[in-house]
Design a protein around this nucleic acid. Structure first.
Lengths: 221, 221, 221, 221
DNA sequence: GATGAATGAGATTTCATTCAT
DNA sequence: AATGAATGAAATCTCATTCAT
């Protein structure tokens, strides 16, 4: 098939999968339903994605893509301001991204769990080729560090323009920011529909606290 | 059966489950393997745990117990020092706990995914009673907020003894600390067996950075 | 399970399979229907028989068993008469067996086709272990020549008692008889429900002609 | 397309199908492989043959054609000798034909299975028109009895010229001869790659025995 | 007429969970 | 309470056949 057509259809399938998975979660989503939602047969579905797992990798890839785009656009919109402001803007975008694309942020988290199981398989010499051959899995490999790198670059710009302390280890601080976002998603996901009593803390304040901690850490004294 | 004997066996099963789940994660673990590892049959396994999920709840409960104990003991060992120091010590313990009990920290995270899935089911009118009536699930409910509360209390002590700024929202800062730990676990799990190039950051420095951010946020100017 | 109980159930499944296959033929029979007919699930069916093919081997085995029993009983009933008469009786029984157990005779024919495909697989170094490991397949190997041997023995008795010519090559004549029966089944199967015009020959006369040819070949001049 | 070109291509496809089917039998042959072997796509294959079955009918038709030709040529070469000799020659040719064209003889046998299956379908009110309207199926109808008729005619010549007993039922004896050949093919196919111990009988002697039985039955005392 | 993609039916597998003894 | 067998739901695969272009 014309590669671009195939791509279009593949995307339609991923759209369908996202809809189904978004409402039921990955484990409860049925391939049958995804196929139905995409208006195709299960067999066709399998001709596009070797397995449910690989289909999920495609979604995860989209999540990384979307996140990356958000990062790029944030950077673009903050060319005029200081690197510190730009860095803060990136983290703010990241937080918003997670809030507005809950399914994607969940996918991002699941990704970490999945590579964790994968690696164990590898350790036990089980055949993981099926999974690791997934083109999307490979593409994720290429993409996963890009958001981090973009953040690092923005921080470095901040160092240059004097808005960020020169002794800041950009990679380290980027990762630290990332842990805060990741932890935030987790809390978000757990609390979004949960009546857990203690979590009556306004998540917005939590986000702001995290952002201000970052700023404090980066900004000149 | 003699209740205490049952308890012993139950614990043995949980031990077995931990071993099996530790190597491939919850979803890839098979009840068959767990039973085998425990030296019993699957049906016996089911006579102890209604479902795979409930078995995992037992593990999660253990994780919460272990974490709580660590918190208590940390608090105990830091009676003499300031509340700020005590708080820092708690977070340090938390980080160490995760590093040393990776499976437990994973279980803690999975717990959040599970209650999220539960709430989804509830929204869809699926019968969740089986799960929510699970004795371990109930026990977790009672325990889940304790570590948070203990941290809050320690922070409050810090406010009283003047080591922590009086305008600190203890619950908020506790949660913020928690997000950093949670994000840290995620990175930990993802990086442990992943050859991702950027993650050549020493995880120890990451932990220390997080701790120092917390301290800065709490300590008097 | 108690081996005998398993055997009983296995036999019930084979009974069900025979019913389904008898009315639709092997290729059109669905595993689903066989399972339903046996009052079990498909999975259970598969726990008894690795594949549809192996299930068919079980039926073929039964066919060989039934045929062997018929041969034994025929021999038993013809102890008093000459070897020639006994031999004729065996062939007569064979013919009747095919007429009365059409499904079995078809299975016998299919067996030859199946081992033919099997052997090609082997030649091409494809993994045939699945098929050849079938316990029924192995059992058939042990049984398949017994009817031939019994016929040979009866012929030899005929040579000894003087009713059969002493220069007869028993194995050869047995096989020759077998070819006539096999050919007869084929015609039977093709004609039974077919309105083929030329086959207005009475199949009974055909059988008698074959028998008389055999007798002529064996009997003393 | 130019009809003759179509015919050529059709034949090429049949050649390819024969190669593929020869190695594993009809049921294990894949349309995919046949298409590949013919150097065309599956859809093109289907534009030539409505179904796998119909493709096989084309092969079967070829088998009947080839067999018929052999019969004609045998008859032609035996004009000068007696009808009995001619009849024997026909059966001899038939045996040789099977040995030399194993795939064809198998196809001939399969044909009987197929028409049996068809008649079953008809009984169950399944629509069989697709098959029965297949041009090759129709052509086979016209041809299938010709070899038998030729044999009958040759026998009748034998009766006239006095070489065959006048009380011989030619149709019946022809069919009887046919059963022997059919049985022979079956044994041939089963033994060719089978390590069955008893089948150490020289198949050539078997053929000769069958022929001599026929001769005895036909020849004047 | 030819092509790649899709379909539908059925075989087979996996696994959590339940049943019968 | 313990066991082997069975269930049901879903994943996955295979292949003849059909569709859209």
């Amino acid at each position: 098939m014309d590669p671009s057509k195939r791509q279009i259809k593949e995307n339609r399938i991923i759209d369908a999968a996202i809809e189904v998975i978004a409402s039921n979660g990955f484990h409860k989503a049925k391939m049958d339903n995804i196929a139905k939602q995409a208006g195709i047969t299960k067999v066709t579905l399998y001709s596009y994605f070797d397995s449910k797992e690989n289909l999920y990798f495609a979604i995860i890839y989209r999540a990384f893509q979307a996140l990356t785009e958000v990062f790029y656009s944030t950077i673009d919109q903050n060319k005029g301001v200081s690197g510190l402001e730009g860095t803060k803007a990136i983290f703010e975008s990241f937080f918003s991204f997670c809030e507005n694309n809950f399914m994607y942020s969940e996918a991002l988290l699941d990704y970490f769990s999945m590579i964790r199981s994968l690696s164990r398989d590898k350790a036990e010499d089980v055949d993981t080729s099926m999974t690791t051959q997934s083109s999307y899995f490979i593409r994720i490999q290429d993409l996963q560090n890009l958001p981090l790198k973009l953040t690092v670059k923005e921080m470095e710009r901040g160092i240059k323009d004097g808005s960020i302390r020169s002794d800041v280890d950009c990679m380290l601080h980027t990762l630290q920011g990332w842990t805060m976002v990741v932890g935030y998603i987790k809390l978000l996901s757990a609390s979004s529909k949960n009546e857990s009593p203690l979590l009556n803390v306004n998540l917005k304040s939590l986000k702001e606290l995290s952002l201000s901690l970052s700023e404090t850490a980066l900004a000149k004294a």
